[in-house]
Simulated scan of single mutants.
Amino acid sequence: MQLHELETPALILDRLAMDRNIARLRGRLAPFGVTLRPHVKTNKSADVSRRIGAPGTPITVSTLKEAEYFLEHGWTDILYAVGIAPSKLPHVERLARRGARITVLLDNVESAAAVAAYCAAHRLRLPVLIEVDTDGHRAGIKPDDAELLEVAAVLARNDDGEGAWVAGVLTHAGASYDCRSAAAIEAMAEQERAGAVRAAQRLRAAGHAAPVVSVGSTPTAHFVRALDGVTEVRAGVFVFFDLVMHGLGVCAVEDIALSVLCTVIGHQREKGWLITDAGWMAMSRDRGTAKQPVDQGYGMVCDVEGRPLPDLVMADANQEHGTIRHRSDPAATPMLPVGTLLRILPNHACATAAQHGAYAVVAGGTDIEATWPRFGGW
């Protein structure tokens, strides 16, 4: 098939660009001797994840549905990297009983007590990472906070060889998405590393094994200069990249492997608008570039071959309609004919991919070489 045979909107994945992106990060991390634990929430596809690592290699998930799916496809070393809710522990147990080595995450005494009690009652051996806040971005305990050791003590209290146990620490430098230079991302990467290592050292000094020190974000993974004391790095959007990553200087436009194919369905000539059949239901509501120096609207516009069209962006979006215009001069918008196929590069690859049920896979052109299913939901 060819792209022009698809019904639009459709999600397009350039396999060649994706493979280059994967090789780039693996090469970047190789000198540090750490494990790459990719975050499969971005792709939600066994076909894509096999390009990163064979079934059985470590992965990170953000939902238990992802854990279920990837276990069924052969991945067993699974980190569930969202704070555990007690109501999900029976699901975690089912996964563990089916052969998953699943690790859970928490950052408070209440959750630790719930996990410890459940594991003791069900004779479940469960590794637990304590989330550490190294940048004030989201969840976690500060590396030097007394609560870190309090949480660990609650988990260890019921560790009789079968219960929950302190496997280590995890942090995510989400604030790296707000950096405005390579030097700033490098500094954030070191802040992330140092905070996680400090927390793990405190746990070990208190008698906990804490063998795992898990760090990661796509920006810091690409700019880190040292990983002393770190055992694994997590990243997800590196597989596809997107306009936010481009705006941070992490990737070039040609590295973005994901796009949405759409069709011009009309014009508003007096306004300088092209109307397409891809709105925010196809692109997502994510406007991550709005706070960057260059605002890409809802996405950068390319021709059907994936080549950027100068200064054209999806400036606005309704549910099923996208409005394309010149970014600074609507009068300069080319009135492309109805039926013209365009490809829109997304702000946030995870959010855009989540709107679709499959990837139409190409290799740098318009020939479709495969269709890879993906899933969504919880």
Rank of each mutant, 00 (worst) to 15 (best):
D47V: 01
D47Q: 11
V48H: 00
V48C: 06
S49Q: 14
R50P: 05
R50Y: 01
R51N: 06
R51K: 07
R51F: 00
I52M: 09
I52R: 05
I52C: 01
G53Q: 07
G53N: 07
A54P: 06
A54E: 05
A54G: 00
P55W: 04
P55T: 06
P55R: 02
P55N: 02
G56N: 02
G56P: 00
G56D: 04
T57D: 10
P58N: 02
P58G: 05
I59V: 08
I59E: 00
I59C: 04
T60Y: 03
T60W: 01
T60R: 00
V61W: 00
T63R: 00
K65A: 08
K65I: 06
E66N: 02
A67E: 09
Y69P: 03
Y69D: 12
F70P: 08
F70C: 09
F70A: 10
L71G: 03
L71H: 05
E72M: 06
E72L: 03
H73S: 03
G74Y: 02
T76M: 05
D77P: 00
I78E: 05
I78H: 07
I78F: 03
L79W: 04
L79N: 07
L79D: 05
Y80T: 01
A81C: 01
G83I: 03
G83D: 09
I84M: 11
A85V: 11
A85F: 12
S87V: 10
P90C: 07
P90I: 07
P90K: 05
P90A: 07
V92K: 02
E93A: 14
E93P: 06
R94S: 10
R94M: 03
L95I: 06
A96T: 10
R98I: 06
R98S: 13
R101D: 12
I102E: 08
T103M: 12
T103I: 13
V104Y: 10
L105K: 14
L105T: 15
L105S: 15
L106R: 11
L106K: 13
L106D: 04
L106W: 08
D107M: 11
N108K: 12
N108A: 11
V109M: 13
E110Q: 13
A114Y: 11
V115S: 13
A116P: 11
A116Y: 10
A116N: 08
A117N: 13
A117Y: 09
A117Q: 14
Y118A: 14
Y118C: 12
Y118D: 15
C119G: 12
A120F: 08
A121Y: 09
A121R: 11
H122V: 10
H122S: 11
R123K: 15
R123T: 13
R123Y: 04
L124G: 10
L124M: 15
L124F: 07
L124A: 09
L124V: 12
R125I: 06
R125S: 12
P127M: 07
I130Y: 12
I130K: 10
I130H: 11
E131K: 04
E131L: 01
V132M: 06
V132H: 03
V132S: 03
